[in-house]
Amino acid sequence: MYQWDFAFLWSYRWLFLNGLGVTVGFTVAIVGFGLVAGLAAALAKLSAFAPLRWLAHAYIEVFRCTPVLVQLVWFYYALPIMSGIEISAITASILALSLYGGSFYAEIIRGGIVSIDPGQPEAAAALGMTPFQAMRRIILPQALKRMVPPLMNQSIIQFKNTSLVSVLAVPDLLYQGQIAAHDSYRPLEVYSAVAVAYFLLLFPLTIIVRQGEKKLSTSD
């Protein structure tokens, strides 16, 4: 019978906290960059300028239809060979995960924008608003309300995806867990603790998202 022993984990607390910090920092970075990429791609896909639409379409489909782990490895090993520019594991990870997330955000944002009744931009135009003013004052505020819950859900997935960067030896929570597991010969306790840590961070977030969804569905 296996003797569980969690007490020793205490001596690795700084390692875990470090990893947690990297994980959270990565999440913030890839959600932020991903939203920027997603908004840009969504607006490009709605553009009247066809080449911009095709470009956005190609970006979105390429990143949605390849596994994120493959993208990560490709950005780290293949991109430097192709471009001749050395990039660090951290840069490759942020690039790949942001662009991956951005391709999903783009579809959420575009969907939110096109779900707005065409009478809205028409009324804005009739009042003398420019397309930019109509987007900022009339369309996006309405679309945002519908976009927030799916954007939050996608961001939770992004949070989980950060664990993949451990394959490039980026010292996130999972990577530090691997170190602790090797060091202590107690992978069972260590990986259980890692799983619990992810859960404790994500579970409250999912509750917030669900409550937000409920509030939105009753307010409309």
Binding site: G119, A123, A126, G128, I138, P141, K145
Partner: peptide, 19 residues
């Protein structure tokens, strides 16, 4: 936009800004 600012339009389905 400047041109349209000088003409008011009222639509069949109102098109008020719901927010």
């Amino acid at each position: 936009a400047n041109f349209r600012a000088g003409t008011g339009m009222v639509f069949q389905h109102f098109n008020l800004f719901p927010h």
